[in-house]
Simulated scan of single mutants.
Amino acid sequence: MNKAEKVNYIIDELEKLYPVVEVPLDHKDPYTLLVAVLLSAQCTDKRVNQITPLLFERADNPFDMVKLSVEEIKEIIRPCGLSPMKSKGIYGLSHILIDKYNGEVPKDMGALEELPAVGHKTASVVMAQAFNIPAFPVDTHIHRLLTRWGITNGKSVVQTEKDAKRLFPKELWNKLHVQIIYYGREYSPARNPKLSKDFITKNCASKKVLKTYADYEA
């Protein structure tokens, strides 16, 4: 398949598998989504969803969050890892949201990326899932899969995002990035993937990639 054929095949298969998708991080509004995505860095969504109820019971908005100390936030979110950096980020961005945006999360990529501990991927998720503004967040899972499928050369997540945006229709970006995450978890994990199960890779990948699978048969 050429790239155009791969793109159409991937879209069709993911739509069959996951016609309805929800963000795997529990949240109720843009602020709680922003905090949850920040916490998900180098942490599983499952673990984040176990911790955010404890945090949001104390503070589910920036006004209540700044009433907590950084140490209090850090103690609650410790199981998510990187708690010193994340707690400072949550506390700091909450202050900025109050001071600059009346406590609201801005609908602007640049403004989001200026917030403490908020990188491009986190900002992209918030733009896509909180505000339904087209974005294509690329995490390590999406980077891995689009590389396996020959959609990108895999040199960097920056290049992967550019290639994804160039090849996939803009109106599908927000849904597609979640569908790819779902597929990766179910069919194409990072460790010990099985080609017999990973049918999109089986049909899209180069022979060089296919040979990395333990159950590859020429």
Results as ranks from 00 to 15, higher is better:
E22Q: 14
V23Q: 13
V23I: 12
P24V: 14
L25H: 06
L25F: 14
D26N: 15
D26T: 15
D26A: 12
H27F: 14
K28I: 15
D29N: 15
P30F: 10
Y31T: 06
Y31D: 03
Y31M: 07
L33G: 02
V35Y: 08
V37R: 00
V37G: 00
V37N: 00
L39P: 01
S40T: 01
A41R: 05
A41H: 09
Q42L: 10
C43R: 12
T44R: 03
T44P: 03
K46E: 14
K46P: 00
K46M: 04
R47C: 09
R47H: 09
V48H: 09
N49L: 08
N49S: 01
N49H: 00
Q50G: 11
I51C: 12
I51S: 06
I51P: 10
I51M: 08
T52N: 06
P53R: 06
P53T: 12
F56D: 06
E57F: 02
A59K: 07
D60Y: 11
N61Q: 11
F63L: 14
F63Y: 14
D64T: 13
D64F: 09
K67G: 10
K67E: 15
V70T: 09
V70N: 03
E71F: 00
E71L: 05
E72M: 08
I73G: 07
K74I: 00
E75S: 15
I76W: 04
I76H: 07
I76L: 11
I77L: 10
R78T: 13
R78E: 14
P79Y: 13
G81C: 07
G81N: 13
G81T: 06
G81F: 12
L82Y: 13
L82I: 13
L82N: 05
S87A: 15
S87C: 06
S87I: 05
K88H: 12
K88T: 12
I90D: 03
Y91E: 10
Y91M: 11
Y91R: 06
G92Y: 03
H95Y: 10
I96H: 10
D99F: 06
K100M: 02
E104R: 14
E104H: 12
V105F: 00
V105D: 04
K107R: 15
K107T: 04
G110V: 09
G110S: 02
A111F: 00
A111C: 01
A111V: 01
A111Q: 15
E113R: 13
E114D: 04
E114V: 02
L115Q: 05
L115D: 01
L115F: 02
A117N: 09
A117V: 03
V118H: 03
G119V: 02
H120V: 02
H120M: 03
H120F: 13
K121P: 05
K121E: 05
T122A: 11
V125M: 09
V126R: 00
M127D: 08
I133L: 14
I133E: 12
P134Q: 05
A135F: 04
F136D: 09
F136N: 10
F136M: 11
V138H: 07
D139S: 11
T140L: 09
T140E: 05
H141I: 14
H141W: 12
I142D: 04
H143C: 04
L146W: 03
L146H: 08
T147M: 08
R148M: 03
R148E: 02
W149Y: 12
W149V: 00
I151A: 01
I151T: 05
N153I: 09
G154N: 11
K155Q: 13
K155A: 11
